[in-house]
Nucleic acid binder design. Structure first.
Lengths: 240, 240
DNA sequence: ATAATCCTATTGTCCTACAACCCTATAAGT
DNA sequence: ACTTATAGGGTTGTAGGACAATAGGATTAT
């Protein structure tokens, strides 16, 4: 039995990345400063250059380091934005309504863009998601997943990865919040899902027909009714 | 102004990481699923195994992937939803345009809601932000901060904390990307800021007048022109 | 039936080589 | 004198090969 059987020792790239990050956090390396060369870092840490590259690649992904080929690697001047919502705050119904509204803004517009841009493959994925909703037992949590999948398929149809990521993020946040705050989430959401198949079908039909205005109206109507079913009233009466 | 002035094509590890992430986001890979082997991924993407390793290392750093030596790499079980965009991927002009579009959807709708809901205190904050833009030396990065502050003040006027947080997140992401990919960001953005004071004033005036349609139109116009100034054309011709 | 050993598959690390890019100094042209 | 082009050296980005370390399943021994 060795110590590291208790938990896996981090691999070298992870450890090197942490060491470099420490230099930055302790301000021995400041924004704009140039790191030693990859080879010099490899020499001083006693590892291969590949390991250093992986470590730097991690920090680059986090936006902490920026590399320029032929020049060097530098400490970035600005931090990377991250969006995360306080799960406890969302237990408050008014906070949840605000989140729902944010999601509505995105998804209503996404439906319009999907109607305009969707490819046949994306439409097929939307149809599969709709079929999955029809086949879902109303008392199973699969109803939630199918609903989520439908909305993601719509967002996918926009052809914009950031819309898709934002919708996925928000949908997941809504789902997690409902699952964590409802007494009997599956039963309630199962009912909701059955009622809304017609609404989803209307969205699907408009996207299939490549009718942006109709898709937008159908999504607005669906979101509005979904909010009502959850006990909220959203302001969607203005043109959206 | 050329499109490629925005910066370099992302390197292979970043692109491969995005592709793998796409598989996960689109649920072709689900939590607990095992990825193809590194060599198989290298073969199918047509890159060396080192590149695949760097890509996976990035995703491991983000907690999205977990690797077990001798076994394989697996999609991690879902944790708290987090939204963060790969800083390097955004150096790609088409990715940046997609981000800009996402931001546009939110901010245009936020202007309408702010016109309807803003309080006198929030209007005063908007006025201060506008004044700050007027007083800003056009060659200083303070112009960027003032612009950001104006947009945050608009989002604050919606009375929806999640809209405000999302707008802040997206605005910051746009700002960071511009600052990191432009040869002389301060000079260029300073010029942009001066040109747009009239546009911002129109937004402010509509919000002060509590005219949602006019606020929405003013923001759409501003976003549309801002995109043009950055070399993009957004699809905002549909009703939003 | 259980434990030990073996074998295969896969990740983790190292090494070498070369492409691509960047910067600076020098040479050539105007 | 000033501008432009070129060469050389340095550094990152990628490819490919080799072997170490780890894990899991199959086989063999008790």
């Amino acid at each position: 039995m060795k110590i590291d059987a208790l938990g896996r020792t981090p691999q070298l790239p992870s450890r090197i990345a942490s060491r470099i990050l420490q230099e930055i956090v302790e301000e021995r390396l400041k924004p704009g400063d140039r790191l030693p060369t990859e080879q010099a870092l490899a020499d001083s840490f006693g590892v291969s250059r590949n390991v250093v590259r992986e470590a730097i690649s991690r920090l680059r992904s986090d936006g902490i380091i920026q590399s320029r080929q032929g020049v060097g690697a530098f400490v970035a001047r600005t931090a990377v934005p991250t969006l995360r919502f306080d799960a406890e705050a969302l237990a408050d119904p008014s906070a949840f309504q605000a989140l729902f509204e944010l999601r509505a803004i995105l998804e209503i517009r996404a439906a319009s863009l999907a109607a305009r841009r969707r490819t046949p493959e994306q439409l097929a994925a939307l149809e599969r998601a709709l079929d999955r909703m029809r086949g879902t037992e109303k008392w199973a949590s699969g109803g939630v997943d199918a609903d989520l999948e439908f909305h993601k398929a719509v967002a996918e149809g926009t052809g914009n990865a950031y819309i898709r990521m934002a919708v996925s993020f928000l949908s997941e946040q809504v789902r997690v919040t409902i699952m964590e705050t409802r007494a009997r989430p599956e039963a309630e959401l199962g009912d909701i899902v059955e009622v809304t198949i017609a609404e989803h079908a209307a969205i699907h039909d408009a996207i299939a027909a490549q009718d942006p205005a109709r898709a937008q109206d159908a999504m607005a109507r669906h979101i509005h009714l979904a909010a009502l079913r959850l006990g909220y009233r959203l302001e969607l009466t203005e043109p959206v």
